[in-house]
């Protein structure tokens, strides 16, 4: 009996050429993004060698300057892997900056108390959106779009003007440096890296993480296999809400102010980073490691444009657009191949 299986499956494996197998490998998009990052970095090295691009700190700054984006994108990775989308990310970040600045500056609350409060607000917001998506079977696009408007509106309820933070404990936290041999990292960058490691562990070594992949692969099947698909979905949006709030705190540290217009549209940067990192928008396939490279690529584009000096910052947008387009096409080619 096993002979028949062998006769059918074995040739399958043998006849598939090396390239075809490589194309089918789920890790390929991550490798492509990593290679792209490397190529861009080397190009930067050779072009701006004399302007200090080779300094290790330039590389470290990628993490420092994009710590909040990295955290937000990690949250978005969970959502997208599960086959959903979260458009409220930018607004939750903006709201968290306002909320934090207002509590610290206007209410005189110590920052160590504000942090857990802000995180709880983000997580609860995410939980509620997940609850609505799951229990009323509404598309995540619409629900999180409502969340986007809601949180942006709440920013303005707190204050119409920006609140700058002068609290000394906040600024000392923001300026703290963790030296790492040739360079240093900020507190924000360290937090982002910890979040990243935690996300990697959760996605690959816990049942919850595997359920996220299963739901993204086929939600109906996941349910019929007896997996608690509803709870997983709600949890995914809670994770995203939590990450958004955490990103908001990092953003507050980075910029040291709250503003109703902070981080407008950052959800789109996060989604772009996830997609460039090789995660399928339809869910079920991708790696949080890819997201890191996605964020690094976006960050590197910004740095290169700064080094160039003559280019306007909107070139970042154009480059992001081109990259997104290219990566969506790669994804398309990969999924098309799988179907046949």
């Amino acid at each position: 009996m096993s002979a028949t299986t062998q006769s059918r499956t074995a040739p399958d494996r043998r006849t598939t050429s090396k390239t075809a197998r490589l194309l089918g490998d789920r890790r390929l998009p991550v490798l492509v993004t990593a290679a792209l990052f490397l190529v861009m970095y080397i190009a930067g090295l050779s072009r701006y060698q004399n302007y200090g691009f080779a300094e290790p700190q330039v590389f470290m700054n990628l993490f420092i300057d994009n710590s909040y984006l990295l955290v937000a994108a990690v949250g978005a990775t969970f959502v997208i892997l599960s086959g959903g989308i979260d458009l409220s990310v930018g607004s939750v970040i903006g709201f968290t900056t306002m909320f934090t600045a207002w509590l610290v500056e206007r209410q005189g609350m110590p920052i160590l108390l504000v942090i857990p409060l802000a995180l709880a607000v983000g997580a609860v917001g995410g939980f509620l959106m997940g609850y609505v998506i799951q229990n009323f079977e509404i598309q995540p696009f619409i629900v999180t779009l409502a969340g986007l408007f809601l949180f942006r509106g709440l920013c303005l309820v707190i204050s119409k003007e920006s609140i700058s933070i002068t609290d000394s404990s906040v600024s000392s936290m923001a300026q703290a440096q963790v030296s790492l041999g040739a360079g240093f990292l900020s507190v924000g960058a360290i937090v982002a890296l910890v979040v990243l490691a935690a996300a990697f562990y959760v996605l690959h070594y816990t049942r919850f993480g595997r359920r996220v992949y299963a739901i993204g692969g086929n939600e109906q099947s996941a349910m019929l296999m007896g997996l608690p698909q509803g709870g997983t979905k709600i949890a995914v949006y809670t994770v995203s809400g939590f990450c958004s709030a955490l990103a908001g705190l990092l953003f507050t540290l980075y910029i040291q102010s709250g503003d109703p217009l902070h981080a407008t549209g950052m959800e789109l940067d996060a989604i772009a980073a996830v997609v460039i990192g090789g995660t399928l928008l339809t869910g079920g396939s991708g790696y949080v490691l890819g997201t890191v490279f996605g964020v690094l690529v976006l960050g590197l584009i910004k740095s290169i444009i700064q080094f160039e000096g003559t280019l306007s910052s909107w070139w970042t947008k154009i480059a992001t657009g081109v990259l997104l387009c290219a990566f969506i096409l790669i994804q398309r080619a990969m999924t098309a191949r799988k179907k046949t």
Partner: peptide
């Protein structure tokens, strides 16, 4: 069922065991 109710994106092993993976202290 007639339709295969599994997740095509996961490995065969995972499809067999998902939901009841062997874990130690929560780690698969």
């Amino acid at each position: 069922y007639q339709e295969v109710n599994l997740c095509p994106n996961l490995s065969v092993a995972e499809n067999i065991f998902i939901g009841r993976e062997p874990t130690r202290a929560g780690r698969i």
